[in-house]
């Protein structure tokens, strides 16, 4: 039913416009298909506190039964880089279990995804890209959720 995703997102939007945890902010939610969020990372020298990263959420009609597509979005102005992390490719695709079909659960929401990504970055100790990054970025044509990631290093 088309109604499910739009109603749920309207309700999430009301909540998000209220309060969000520090370092997470809503940039735009002009429609119920695409939302932009900004993220900053406290207490990790890899990510200077002045840097902000932009997340793009794409929702299907079946959200929240289906996971949203969440990627980092590079921008010139204001400057938004793709954060350096062994599970984040230079094209912005994030390898995170809760975002793929097996790991997703409909009780997650935009805020909880942002918190998960923020803490994944906050806890990171390796300033590097995933192995095979250049090759993946060159050859990948799939949507993020159709990619079968190997979780090569679950400790990260």
């Amino acid at each position: 039913m088309a109604g499910m995703s739009s109603k749920r997102l309207q309700k999430e939007l009301v909540k998000i416009q209220g309060t969000l945890p520090p370092g997470i902010s809503l940039v735009s939610a002009d429609n119920l298909r695409e939302w932009l969020m900004d993220l900053s990372i406290p207490d990790n020298p890899i990510y200077p506190p002045t840097d902000t990263y932009r997340l793009r959420f794409l929702f299907s009609q079946s959200y929240p039964i289906e996971a949203p597509e969440v990627t980092f979005l590079p921008l010139q102005s204001p400057e938004r880089k793709i954060p350096l992390h062994p599970h984040i490719y230079t094209n912005g695709i994030i390898c995170l279990d809760l975002l793929d079909a097996q790991g997703w659960s409909p009780v997650h929401n935009v805020e909880s995804i942002c918190i998960s990504i923020q803490s994944m970055l906050a806890g990171n100790t390796k300033a590097e890209r995933p192995p095979g990054d250049a090759e993946f970025v060159r050859s990948n044509r799939s949507r993020p959720r159709d990619i079968n990631f190997l979780y090569h290093d679950p400790s990260v």
């Binding site: 039964i65 289906e66 097996q102 997703w104 659960s105 409909p106 009780v107």
Partner: peptide
């Protein structure tokens, strides 16, 4: 209706998996 919809795709408890 909604938990049925979820279980059709993923036969797991949404909170505990």
């Amino acid at each position: 209706a909604t938990i049925y919809e979820h279980l059709k795709r993923s036969p797991t408890d949404p909170l505990t998996r």
